[in-house]
Design a protein around this nucleic acid. Structure first.
Lengths: 114, 114
DNA sequence: CCACAATATGAATATCTGTTCATATGAAGT
DNA sequence: ACTTCATATGAACAGATATTCATATTGTGG
């Protein structure tokens, strides 16, 4: 038998990781944030809004989906503060909340296209 | 009544969006890609691997989860090519596939912390 | 080749998620 | 006020997802 200590758990690694690991709450928020991008309908909506503000019905037409389905998804995007809205009469115009979102979509696309 | 044509669908917007919209397949891949980041366990694993290569059991210890659960999630990360592995005897050491992943995690964290 | 150690896998289950359908809200014109 | 248009919302159902438990695979030392 060699002088290897087969400790099963590598203490140094454990310690190093524990030191640098973000808090549970932050990690949870991060996963919740990315979860929003993890649905094709929401991704499509975000790409639509890259072109500027668009009303609910137009989004529904573009995605060939019911107004209700879109509205539900917009609620999620709103809650996560990825989109904002503006009222004009009966019509609601949605747009991206900030340009972080564009960066995130681009970065993801880059990874896909390698 | 004003000279507004209330067409309900805004043709110019529709046309503009349709022109610039990525293909369905790409959008699907993108959402599938982000879906991986949309689970706290996988996010935790990725943050662990930011510190370098770590074996399965150590990950399980760090996250206080069963080896089986971790192994299942590693399979998904493997399939999506977010991690690679190296065998050393009975032990498998996992590590991040490339540095894109670190960028994506950082970008997400930035957005959370605003 | 046998026993054990490290990891992987399959089936089952409980929970979560997205769409649909019906209905509600809210604004504008008559 | 009433009707219509644009959007929002609630309940329900179907499909997806993560963990658990039991078991299989693969490598190592004796």
């Amino acid at each position: 038998m060699e002088e290897k200590e087969f400790l099963h758990v590598h203490e140094e690694v454990i310690a190093k990781v524990q030191e640098k690991m973000p808090e549970e709450e932050r990690l949870y928020q991060l996963s919740e944030f990315y979860k929003v991008f993890g649905d094709i309908t929401r991704v499509k909506i975000l790409f639509v809004l890259l072109q500027g503000e668009v009303c609910v019905y137009d989004i529904a037409c573009l995605l060939d989906m019911t107004q209700s389905a879109i509205s539900h998804q917009l609620r999620i995007l709103k809650q996560m503060q990825l989109v904002t809205y503006r009222r004009e009469g009966k019509t609601m115009f949605y747009s991206l909340a900030d340009d972080h979102i564009e960066n995130i979509l681009r970065l993801g696309m880059e990874h896909i296209c390698e």
